[in-house]
């Protein structure tokens, strides 16, 4: 998050009259922010407290010390380690192969004229707006016939396919703005068109690749509906579905401390990512011209 205030001006130059007219604005923002901070801090406090302390509303007193064992309990006994590893696998493999499929396609779509070019581009845009409910039933039927393929592989492939239209469309504009002279120079030096792409053009769009990969990572990490259908068994579930299962088993285990520790573990990776990359993410939401 933008902790550094770039427009910082020395204190004596603050225009107090101007600031005063904005007081209602500050109050509204601070109430919203205070509420967000309060419940996040409480969850963090609860994740370090015992169940009786939580029940009696004594979360921030820590009378019996900090209970880091909640995290150990959530991580090993409640299977969070497994869910976490699954999510990491889906997200990293998904991001990587999405780029491998999308970047070359986007490159030829934006720089070469050929039959079907326009049709493929419009199909990609339509595919981006097709809701998941329109495709899950037939995909379930297809994947059911590959039952000897590992579930993790099936879900990874689905996540890749699910991100390809958005990624390809996102990269189109970036490839289109590169100068033709790169390709001409490479051709004169005897570089093949495919070599030109991988060695010269691909590295040139690196900033766009980073942005789109952040969105793909968040999208796959937070995917829920498809995960519930295709990766819901305990051994292959990603963090979202896993957390739902932990919540559902709460009525039997009653370990609230561990539940809140699990919430923090699921929440933390994308939250940390956001703290470091919020400017880039926020610019990407509106700047790319397309929705993630």
């Amino acid at each position: 998050m933008g902790f550094r205030n770039k427009e910082k001006i020395p204190a004596h130059r603050i225009n107090w009259k101007k600031e005063a007219t904005m007081l209602p604005g500050y109050i509204i923002l601070l109430v919203w922010l205070g509420f967000t901070a309060a419940f996040l801090l409480w969850i963090l406090g609860a994740s370090l407290s015992t169940t009786p302390e939580i029940m009696q509303g004594k979360v921030f007193k820590f009378e019996t010390g900090l209970h880091f064992e909640n995290y150990a309990l959530a991580w090993s006994q409640q299977n969070v380690a497994r869910y976490f590893a699954n999510s990491l696998l889906y997200s990293v493999a998904g991001c990587f192969f999405t780029i491998v499929i999308s970047a070359p396609a986007s490159y030829v779509l934006s720089r070469y004229k050929f039959i079907c070019n326009k049709i493929i581009k419009s199909s990609l845009i339509i595919a981006m707006s097709v809701p998941a409910v329109m495709i899950v039933l037939p995909i379930y039927a297809i994947t059911a016939s590959w039952r000897n393929a590992p579930d993790r592989l099936i879900f990874t492939v689905l996540m890749i396919f699910f991100r390809v239209p958005y990624t390809t469309v996102y990269l189109l504009n970036f490839f289109a703005t590169l100068s033709r002279s790169y390709e001409e120079a490479a051709a004169i030096d005897g570089c093949s068109p495919a070599g030109t792409f991988w060695r010269i053009m691909f590295p040139l769009v690196q900033p766009a690749l980073v942005t789109v990969t952040i969105f793909n990572f968040l999208g796959i990490w937070n995917e829920f509906f498809m995960a519930l259908i295709f990766a819901s068994s305990q051994s292959v579930a990603p963090v979202g579905v896993g957390l739902l299962q932990i919540v559902n088993s709460m009525r039997y285990t009653g370990q609230y401390g561990a539940l809140f520790a699990a919430v923090i573990i699921v929440f933390l990776p994308t939250f940390l990512l956001y703290i470091f990359l919020s400017e880039k993410i926020i610019a990407g939401v509106t700047g790319g011209g397309v929705k993630g």
Binding site: M1, G2, K18, M22, L29, N222, F224, L244, V266, S278
Partner: peptide, 22 residues
């Protein structure tokens, strides 16, 4: 023209980035 605009903006958008299940 409010101060700390980027911080407030990032904080309000934050729930969109974290796991909705969490």
């Amino acid at each position: 023209g409010i101060r700390f605009k980027k911080f407030f903006r990032a904080a309000i958008y934050m729930p969109n980035v974290i796991s909705a299940v969490a």
